[in-house]
Design a protein around this nucleic acid. Structure first.
Lengths: 341, 341
DNA sequence: TTGAAAGCGTTACCAG
DNA sequence: CTGGTAACGCTTTCAA
């Protein structure tokens, strides 16, 4: 907010407040000379249009909400947020962030209070298992709701999701095709709140079951507690196995990367001793040369935001609900079973 | 925004709009019975107070701006943002993000347009070399300006900075004290826009120069181009050296981590063959057991936000400008020179 | 405890 | 192309 108000500027410029307003927001309606004079004086007086007044008048809030599990600092959330921001900011929108909508208490609080707390033009829901009743609550604020990796698209006006199950199915199948028969899937316990995690686990299991008939597969899901030490827990669990597996299929790169590094300290080297594939292609995956399934949450954020903008404008969406596939990224942590020469 | 307006709610509840307003924002001024009735009806009608109207009336925007170099997705920016958010969001503020204020064009555009583009109650400037003229421009929006790791605090109402130079001085000294005499400092070229980077380099150089008298030191700054491949460039430059150094002092962990991993593939193992220390303690530093200097940008963000809130309230700050020190985190990538037994 | 009315700073319609 | 004026939805005195 500047120092002076629109009346002072109008007076100083010898014009009406209408003209001052137009000089800023509809320059084409004002003569070049008048416009220049107004803008000069406004600049001198440190005046600028009040967004609050504009938004009140227009009925638009120029703000959207983004709901997420956990912290904005996680790789997925940051990338998604950045993608949304890259579209919404240039369009004049701010993003109001709601983190940690993943504990019973926070969820309750959030879904009870959102409508009366903030006003937004759209709501993004990123990667969590929102339930139908909660979607219902959200709908009451009467703005478009856009899902990103939500378990279901019921109640959403638009969505973009990665096919986690299929992606993990592909990764698992890759290991099986390589001849691996003893496959372990280390994963942090399902939170019931991150639909991606669950879907990936399903993909792994389905791939193993499908292959079971053709091969004598020894596979298992190795579930460890959530929390900051999940990778170390998985490491211990892996080392405690009677027999070390010939391959590891990881829920995510953040699991795979520490495992590759730390297993090496125990003499288990990839790809010499075992194959391992990750999921995400998050930072440092390339550094350790990890074979993985790539997803692009930044691009998903952009897509979601583009849909949101259209919905806000009342434009129809040609394909409201999109599903994208994870992309296989072959690198150096996998090798045919017994294939080292 | 809900469906109904305040008049409908007032009518349905048989009260005036004043009472409806108070039921929401000053519940203590309304009888319990009336309040309940109003809130019930409001809920039924999906009504809720318009923030736009409230902010217009109050003169507050309930929004702050955050300026940064590069992307929100960098570790430092994400952490700082999350820290600010953790304080500002509960206080009712949204954060309007301005990324990439680091190219000539973006800077110009930004500093010319900010005042007329958005209205904010405070501005955070994170980690870049804003120049005095630009601070001057910023000041014209007449709100508190809070710096985070800015090169100077002139013109800022408050600031929190890490002592990068001292931190790197300490790290370098540590290597020298360990007996190392051939030290290389790989760093991506100074951007002129990231004051932290410059300060760290100065710290390294000063530590070397200070030790020069006492020891026969062979030190050098190995500058490589900025960009996504900076770590690989540093790797090549290091391998091209006539003699491989006995120690490496890294500008940041994002440089150190790939180096440790990739140098290993060329047979240079730490701490056996060389010592290396990083800076930041960013993700995976612990995974590879990297000795480093820790900084906590999340905490700095919180501190900055706390100061901002006070300034917005017009409260005095007891210590407007704070400097914190990086903390030495000894782990496993350093060892006395020739000390392996 | 409640109601009436002024006013926050714009925008947009309608005149001129 | 420009000016006057109502209206956006709320908060806040002031009265009752």
């Amino acid at each position: 907010m500047g120092k002076a108000d629109i009346y002072e500027v109008a007076r100083a410029a010898g014009v009406s407040i209408s003209t001052v307003s137009r000089a800023f927001t509809r320059p084409e309606l004002v003569s070049a000379k008048t416009r220049r004079k107004v803008l000069d004086i406004a600049d001198k007086l440190d005046f600028n249009i009040s967004r609050s007044a504009t938004t009140l008048k227009s009925g638009r809030t120029n703000r959207v909400a983004m709901l997420m599990n956990e912290e904005i600092t996680s790789w997925f959330n940051t990338q998604t947020f950045a993608g949304i921001e890259s579209v919404m900011h240039p369009a004049g929108y701010d993003i109001s962030l709601f983190q940690h909508i993943d504990t019973e208490r926070n969820r309750d609080e959030f879904f009870t209070d959102l409508p009366i707390q903030r006003n937004v033009d759209a709501v993004f829901v990123a990667s969590f298992a929102i339930d139908p009743h909660e979607v219902e609550q959200l709908r009451r604020i009467h703005v478009p709701i856009i899902g990103i990796n939500t378990p279901s698209v019921d109640g959403f006006d638009a969505s973009i999701s990665i096919d986690d199950e299929k992606g993990m199915y592909t990764a698992t199948q890759h290991l099986i095709n390589l001849g691996h028969r003893h496959i372990v899937y280390p994963c942090s316990e399902a939170s019931l709140l991150n639909s991606s995690i669950d879907a990936r686990t399903r993909g792994f299991i389905r791939a193993c079951e499908d292959a079971q008939g053709k091969h004598d597969l020894n596979w298992q899901v190795l579930s460890v507690p959530r929390g900051p030490a999940f990778a170390d827990s998985a490491l211990s669990a892996l080392l405690a196995l009677d027999e070390f597996p010939d391959s590891i299929c990881c829920q995510m790169d953040m699991m795979a990367i520490p495992l590759v590094i730390k297993l090496g300290r125990y003499g288990h080297l990839t790809p010499r001793d075992y194959s391992i594939v990750g999921f995400d292609d998050s930072p440092n995956a390339d550094t350790i040369n990890l074979t993985t399934m790539r997803q692009d949450p930044y691009a998903m954020g952009r897509t979601a935001a583009t849909k949101a903008l259209k919905l806000i404008e009342g434009e129809p969406l040609t394909n409201a609900h999109e599903v994208v596939e994870a992309q296989f990224v072959p690198r150096g942590t996998d090798m045919p079973f017994g294939g080292a020469q």
